[in-house]
Write a protein that binds this DNA or RNA. Sequence first.
DNA 1: TATTGTTATACTCTATAACTATA
DNA 2: TATAGTTATAGAGTATAACAATA
Lengths: 148, 148
Amino acid sequence: MYDSKQAAQEPYLELVRELIFTYQAFTKTGETHIRKLGLTPPQFDVIATLGNIKGFNFKELGEKTLITKGTLTGVIDRLEEKGLVQRQMDQHDRRMFQVVLTKEGETLFEKIFPAQILHFKQQFQTLTPEEHEEILTALRKLKKIFKE
Amino acid sequence: MYDSKQAAQEPYLELVRELIFTYQAFTKTGETHIRKLGLTPPQFDVIATLGNIKGFNFKELGEKTLITKGTLTGVIDRLEEKGLVQRQMDQHDRRMFQVVLTKEGETLFEKIFPAQILHFKQQFQTLTPEEHEEILTALRKLKKIFKE
DNA sequence: TATTGTTATACTCTATAACTATA
DNA sequence: TATAGTTATAGAGTATAACAATA
């Protein structure tokens, strides 16, 4: 990924590199876990987005997950085939529908997060509360930079 | 994405959520930029990995980019078709080759980072050197957690 | 006319496993 | 036998644009 000589030329690059490496380290473990559940990353995104709420309509779901509509149709089709989500037509506007988790979808959702986090729990516990807070603050500062 | 009710139940989730949001904030801008250059994200990864160094052999490149070998063959094929990288056979072990940037690849690489970073430069300059260092330290701690 | 979601197209990435060539 | 990289296969995601149905 980003090279260190370049980072030396431009100190901001080192931050970006670290962000990328950190995120990759997270997803590498996470993705393996997700695949074991028989989900692809976009499918996981949809399940995670729908968890604990009543549902989103197709358009909202696309905005939340950053998946474009043409692609989203296919992703939802596959999740519906797996019995994890359902399309619920809107009574008032028949162009629209809500995407909601089925009972099986809910069950899967409830398993995903504890399992993901359990995986890192012991490691997280090596952080002091101060370190924990510092990391949180650091990430927020960085996020703000990218958002403005 | 990750739900906030769940995060309240498990404090580590908040860190993970922040990491994801921060990374998304970065890539959302970045990906648009990358696509405009005619590259896919994996192709960009390869170019970025090869920038400013003599090259990597196929296996090393796979390890750096986290792209599995079967996939990497295709990615490199496409970059070679675009004239951005080259396979350079190893004299000693004829099973291996180095992947190196062509002159055009170098030129592209030299454009990518300044453009990407310029985009955030003013924002980065709002950080004090201490904040800069703190963020770096924080990310490294987090990375270590995911790697162990 | 505008909006919602589907379909079509063409390409790329993905995992996995069998394979070839060299060591 | 082991290693480096390719090929084959099947499925999934991606952008983009044209399309149908409803508002």
